[in-house]
Structure formats: C-alpha cells, structure tokens
Amino acid sequence: MKYTNEEYSKYLDKKVPKSPLLKNMLFAFLIGGAICCVGQGFSDFYKTVLGLETEAVKTATSITMIFLGALFTGLNLYDDLAKYAGAGTLVPITGFANSIVSPAMEFKREGYILGLAAKMFTIAGPVLVYGISASIAVGFLYYIAMAVVGGGM
C-alpha cells in the first residue's frame, strides 16, 4: 500500500457510502412536523377549551411537550423514532427532554449524585450554555439599540 494520508483520505471519500440526504430530510420534515402539530393541538386546546391566557398557553404547551419527550424516552420509544426522524426529533423541545432524560436513566447506576445528577446535562449542557449566552447577547444588543434609537423603534 503506497498511499499518503492525503491520498488515502481522498480514496476513502469516494468509497464511503453517503447518508441518504433526501430521505433523511423528508423523514425529519414529516416526523418533526407531526411533533409540532401535536404541540399546536395542545396549544389550541389550552387556549380554546381551557381558556388560558396567551403566556400561560405557551408555558403549558412547553410543559406538556417536555413531559411527553421524557415519557417516550423512558418507555424506550423516543430513540426508535429518532433513528428515522433525525433532526425531526432533535430540534423540537421533546428532543431537549430526551437529551436530559436519556443520560439520567443511563447513569443512575453510578449513583443519584455523581451518576444521575452529574451526567444529566452532558448532552444538553452545551445547549444551555450557548443558548443562554446567546439570549443574553441578543438582549444586550436590543437594550443598546433601544437606548440609541429610543422607544420609537
């Protein structure tokens, strides 16, 4: 074998089967869309049937979807769906619940403190860190913009 690393890397790129992008995107769209429709259904239910305020509707819908994501993770079903859905199950808030509940379940054997609690945010941790950081940055920019332009913006 007389390949250099670069030549081998090029050769490997040609040999490796690619992910079925179109199929993956279609499944992500359909299943992710279906999850969002369920969320919309709960939102409508809380608004029209229970007559909650708009802010309360948002909170109640998020709580319900997070609960369902956690429940289906606990029932060993969420990962089976995610195998087909990919980003369709990752992006909605149910995916966030899955990323916290799955390590919590798995690392419980190492104890409730250094196992479950410590490992709970191994996947979701970066989302929280950068999500909260981004919201602070955006909030700060908004504050400056408001101060400069004034309330008429």
Binding site: V16, P17, K18, S19, P20, N24, T73, G74, N76, Y78, D79, L81, A82, K83, A85, G86, T89, L90, G95, N98, S99, V101, S102, P103, M105, E106, F107, I123
Partner: peptide, 17 residues
Amino acid sequence: ERQYRNPLEYGGQRPPT
C-alpha cells in the same frame, strides 16, 4: 456505547458507515 458514544435512549441517527 455508554463509554464511547451516547446513552442508549438518546435519539441519535447513525451514518451508513
């Protein structure tokens, strides 16, 4: 899986390789 990759119930997608 738990040592090298993700928890079993984590919803990830595996590439064909």
